[in-house]
C-alpha cells in the first residue's frame, strides 16, 4: 500500500473503541473554554471603541475561537496520558482511544496556523502576533513545561487564558493600550483562586495524575491563604476599569459587590471550616449523573469556585453591556 493509499484508508479504531465521530474532533477544541475566550475577546474588541467592519470583526473573533480550539486540541494531544487518570477528563477523545494523539496534534497545528495566518492577512499583524503568542504560551509554557512541574502552573499558565481580550482589542484598533492590559490583569489574577478552589475538592484526581496542584504540594491551609490573598488583590483590581476611564457606574457596582462577595467566601473558606475539606469521590450510584459529590467540608470551596465563575462573567457582561448601551465611563 502506498503512502497515499494509507492516508486515504479509514483508520481502524482499537478493539472495543468506536471509531471517531465528527463530534469527537469538535470536542478536541474544548468548546466550553472556547466560549469563554470568545466572550472576553468580544468584550475587548468592543471596548476598543474603534469602528470596525462587522464582517471583519466576525472574522477576527472566528480566528480567536479557532486559535483557542487549536490550542485546546494540542493540549489534549499532549495530556492524553494524564487525562486518562482523571475522572473529569478520561472520557475525552484522546484518552478514550477514539482519536489518536497524532491526529489531535495535526488538527491543533493546522487550526492554529490557519487562525494566525488569517488574522494577520485579514485583520492586522499585532493581533496575529498576540494570538500566536497566546497559543504558543498555552501549549509550550503551560502544557509542556509548567503543568507537571510546579504548583505555580496555573498562575503563570493563566496568562494564556487572560490574553483574549487584548487580542480582541488589538484586532479592532491595532493597538494594545493599558486599559486592554488591565482586562488581562483581571483574568490573570482571577485564575489562581478559581482553579485552586476547584482543586481543593478534586485533588484526588490531580494526585492520581501526578499534577502538582497547590493543595497537593503546599497543603490545604496554604492554598486557602493564597486564595484569600489573590481575592484581596482581585477585588480592587476588578474595580480599577471604573477609575481608568474604561467602565461606567453599572460595572463599578457589579465589580464592587462581586469583589466583596469573593473576599467573604475566601475568608469563610479560610477560617470557617475544619482543617481540610476532604476531596470527595463520586459515589458509584451518583457517578452517572454527578462527576464530583461535594461533602460539607468542601462546600465553601465549591461555592467560591462557582462564585468566581459568575464574578468574571458578570464583570465582562457589565462592561460589554455598558459599551453597547453607550453608558459613559465614570472617569473621562
Amino acid at each position: 500500500m502506498s503512502t497515499l493509499e494509507a492516508l486515504a484508508a479509514p483508520v481502524a479504531a482499537p478493539a472495543n473503541v468506536r471509531a471517531a465521530r465528527a463530534g469527537d474532533y469538535l470536542a478536541l477544541l474544548k468548546p466550553r473554554v472556547m466560549s469563554l475566550v470568545v466572550f472576553t475577546a468580544v468584550t475587548g474588541l468592543i471596548c476598543a471603541g474603534r469602528p470596525m467592519d462587522p464582517w471583519l470583526a466576525a472574522v477576527a473573533i472566528l480566528c480567536i475561537a479557532v486559535g483557542a480550539g487549536g490550542a485546546g486540541a494540542l493540549n489534549m494531544a499532549y495530556d492524553g496520558d494524564i487525562d486518562a487518570l482523571m475522572r473529569r477528563t478520561r472520557r475525552r477523545p484522546v484518552p478514550s482511544g477514539r482519536v489518536q494523539a497524532a491526529d489531535a496534534r495535526a488538527l491543533g497545528v493546522t487550526l492554529s496556523l490557519f487562525a494566525v495566518t488569517i488574522m494577520g492577512l485579514a485583520i492586522n499583524v499585532l493581533a496575529a502576533v498576540l494570538l500566536a503568542f497566546t497559543i504558543i504560551f498555552y501549549v509550550a509554557v503551560y502544557t509542556l513545561w509548567l503543568k507537571r512541574r510546579t504548583p505555580q502552573n496555573i498562575v503563570i499558565g493563566g496568562l494564556a487564558g487572560a490574553l483574549p481580550p487584548l487580542v480582541g482589542w488589538a484586532a479592532a484598533s491595532g493597538t494594545a493600550p493599558l486599559n486592554a492590559w488591565l482586562l488581562v490583569a483581571i483574568i490573570f489574577v482571577w485564575t489562581p483562586p478559581h482553579f485552586w478552589a476547584l482543586s481543593l475538592y478534586t485533588c484526588e484526581d490531580y494526585a492520581a495524575a501526578g499534577v502538582p496542584m497547590m493543595p497537593l504540594v503546599k497543603g490545604v491551609a496554604s492554598t486557602r491563604r493564597q486564595i484569600l490573598a489573590y481575592c484581596l488583590v482581585l477585588a480592587p483590581l476588578g474595580v480599577a476599569p471604573a477609575v481608568t476611564g474604561l467602565a461606567g457606574p453599572i460595572y463599578a457596582a457589579v465589580a464592587s459587590l462581586g469583589g466583596a462577595a469573593l473576599i467573604v467566601l475566601a475568608i469563610r473558606l479560610l477560617v470557617g471550616q475544619g482543617p481540610a475539606p476532604a476531596p470527595a469521590a463520586a459515589s458509584s450510584t451518583s457517578a452517572k449523573t454527578t462527576l464530583y459529590t461535594v461533602d460539607a467540608g468542601a462546600r465553601p470551596a465549591r461555592d467560591l469556585f462557582v462564585l468566581s465563575l459568575v464574578y468574571l462573567f458578570a464583570l465582562f457582561a457589565a462592561l460589554l453591556g455598558e459599551k453597547l448601551a453607550g453608558v459613559a465611563p465614570l472617569v473621562r
Binding site: 483508520v11 471517531a20 465528527a22
Partner: peptide, 17 residues
C-alpha cells in the same frame, strides 16, 4: 489501516460524519 469494504456500518457512518 483497515479495508473500507470490511467496515461495519457504525464505523462507516462515523467516517461519513
Amino acid at each position: 489501516m483497515s479495508d473500507p469494504n470490511d467496515e461495519n456500518p457504525v464505523d462507516a457512518r462515523a467516517r461519513r460524519g
